[in-house]
Amino acid sequence: MKTFGLIGYPLSKSFSQKYFTEKFEKETIKARYLNFPIASIDEFPELINHHPYIGGLNVTIPYKEKVIQYLDDLDPISKEAGAVNVIKVDWTNPTKPKLIGYNSDIIGFSKSIEPLLKSNHKKALILGTGGAAKAVGYALKSLNIDYKLVSRTPEGDNQISYHSLNEAIMNEYTVIVNTTPLGMYGNMEAKPEIPYHYCGENHLFYDLVYNPEVTAFLKAGQDQGAAIKNGLEMLHLQAEAAWEIWNK
Rank of each mutant, 00 (worst) to 15 (best):
V150Q: 04
D146W: 08
Y9N: 10
T95C: 09
Q159H: 02
Y53K: 13
T95R: 11
K13A: 12
Q224I: 05
L235Q: 11
L235E: 06
Q222E: 15
K79E: 09
P62I: 02
G128D: 04
T95A: 10
N158Q: 10
L127P: 10
E65V: 08
E244G: 13
G131N: 11
A133P: 00
M170L: 15
Y63Q: 02
Y19M: 05
V209I: 15
K66T: 00
A83S: 14
G108V: 05
P212V: 09
L99F: 00
G56M: 10
S142Y: 04
E201Q: 14
R32I: 08
I7S: 08
T28C: 10
L237N: 11
D72Q: 02
Y206Q: 01
M184Q: 11
L218A: 02
I113T: 05
V209F: 11
V177I: 15
I77M: 10
D146T: 13
W91G: 06
L11Y: 09
V86M: 09
V150H: 00
D42E: 12
I41C: 07
D73K: 13
E43Y: 08
P212N: 10
K64W: 02
D90A: 06
P154N: 01
A133G: 10
T129W: 07
E27C: 00
D223R: 08
M188I: 13
I7V: 14
S78C: 04
S151P: 01
I61P: 03
V175P: 00
F44W: 07
C199D: 09
G231R: 09
P45R: 07
I245S: 02
A133Q: 02
A31G: 09
V150G: 12
I126W: 04
P212L: 06
E201I: 12
F24N: 01
A241Y: 12
K122V: 08
K134G: 02
F217G: 11
H203W: 08
